[in-house]
Every structure is written in structure tokens, then in C-alpha cells.
Simulated scan of single mutants.
Amino acid sequence: MADDPEPDFEVPMGLFQDMEDLKAQVAALSAQVKTLTAGGGEGAGEAFADDDTEVGEEAEEPEAEDGWQFPPFILLLDSPQYDDELRGLIEWVEGVLVPGYLAEPSSDARWCPNWFEHPVAVARLHACWLAWQELTDPATCGYTGPSVWHRDHLDPCLRELRPSNGPFAGCTKGEHQIDHRMPGIVPSAWRREEA
């Protein structure tokens, strides 16, 4: 059997590249395990910022604009950041959402042209817009991103904003009310009875 020639087959070049990638990933994971078990200052549940770090390299912190690492909750912003974020949101709502997804308003599907004066609408639409930015970007969303955005973000957002008892309930074609949902007097059931 020692005289048997080796089988003649070619190994695809991609297989070698895959093996090298796997080796680099194993080395990076080994370095992360060593750092975590040695008490390198990282919390037990914290992930490294960059999964592609080589052995011996330190993970770089993602650079944040204006001190935010991730997009902020719009209602927590002060001017001028709030104004800038709202301006971008208005462009998206009026340029993409309204013409593409909102049919004519009706009693069952409300819409207020002054939606930006309703804090609940601003908060929900901003969250929907942030998800849209991520899930329609080919670099981050993959093939299913748009479907996920429709199912998980757009549909629930519209279900909450457009019903007859939603934030636009007091708004009709001739009338606009933003604080119609705020009770003026606390119902008696909520008051504590003095004995």
C-alpha cells in the first residue's frame, strides 16, 4: 500500500482562503477568551467593538458623532439637534412614507398633516425611519431587510398611529388637536378615597 500513488484531485483556491479566514477567526476568539479570563477590564458580558481584530490588536471603539454611539431617541434631544433630526424625519415622511404607504385618510385610517406636532407620532415615525435606514442599506440588511422593515417596523407603527382612537383621533380635515388625549381631570377610580 505504500506504493499507492496519492489520489489526483485539485483543491479549490476558495477552500484555502476559507481555511485562512477560519484560522484568523479562531485566533481572534482565542485572544478574546484570554483577555476576558485574565480580567482585562472588560465586563463579562461585553462584546468587542470589532470582531475582525487580529491577535495582539486592540479593538477600536466605534467613533460617534456628537457624543452619540447610536441614534438617539428623538424626544430626548434639545435644539438644534432635535430640529436637525426632525428636519430629516420630515423629509423622509413627506418624501417616502406619505406618497408610498399612506392612502387617503379616513375615519378608520387617520393621518394628520401636522403629524410633527404630535410627540407620539414623532417618536414612532422616527423609530420607523431609523429602522428603514438600517434595513434598506445593502451593507447591513441582506436580502430580507426590507421585508423585516415592513413586518416589524412599518406595519406596527401605522397600526398604532392611524386607528380612530390613535394620536390623530381629534384631527380632522378642518381641525387639528394635539393634546386631545391628555385627560384634564383624573378619573375618580384613580383617586384614593379618604376613609
Results as ranks from 00 to 15, higher is better:
residue 87 R to E: 15
residue 75 L to D: 14
residue 144 T to H: 07
residue 173 K to F: 15
residue 38 A to T: 15
residue 155 D to M: 10
residue 160 E to R: 12
residue 134 E to W: 12
residue 111 W to N: 02
residue 10 E to C: 11
residue 185 I to K: 14
residue 145 G to V: 04
residue 130 L to D: 12
residue 88 G to V: 10
residue 52 D to S: 11
residue 8 D to Y: 04
residue 61 E to S: 13
residue 165 N to M: 02
residue 18 D to L: 11
residue 186 V to C: 06
residue 107 S to L: 14
residue 64 A to S: 13
residue 163 P to M: 01
residue 123 A to K: 10
residue 157 C to T: 15
residue 51 D to E: 15
residue 120 V to A: 13
residue 10 E to R: 10
residue 44 A to Y: 08
residue 105 P to C: 04
residue 166 G to Q: 02
residue 87 R to G: 03
residue 131 A to P: 03
residue 143 Y to I: 13
residue 61 E to V: 09
residue 68 W to L: 09
residue 157 C to S: 05
residue 191 R to S: 12
residue 83 D to K: 06
residue 23 K to G: 05
residue 195 A to R: 07
residue 27 A to F: 10
residue 11 V to M: 02
residue 49 A to P: 10
residue 120 V to K: 09
residue 103 A to I: 08
residue 133 Q to K: 15
residue 88 G to M: 15
residue 177 Q to C: 02
residue 138 P to Q: 02
residue 6 E to C: 12
residue 160 E to V: 02
residue 103 A to V: 10
residue 17 Q to Y: 12
residue 23 K to I: 13
residue 115 W to E: 00
residue 27 A to V: 13
residue 128 C to L: 03
residue 142 G to M: 00
residue 24 A to C: 07
residue 98 V to Y: 06
residue 34 K to A: 12
residue 61 E to N: 11
residue 146 P to W: 08
residue 9 F to R: 02
residue 155 D to V: 14
residue 55 V to Q: 11
residue 194 E to S: 07
residue 35 T to N: 12
residue 4 D to K: 15
residue 10 E to H: 14
residue 195 A to F: 13
residue 161 L to F: 03
residue 46 E to F: 05
residue 160 E to T: 08
residue 51 D to T: 11
residue 180 H to T: 03
residue 128 C to W: 05
residue 8 D to F: 06
residue 141 C to N: 01
residue 195 A to N: 12
residue 68 W to S: 10
residue 80 P to C: 05
residue 63 E to T: 11
residue 59 A to C: 09
residue 193 E to Q: 11
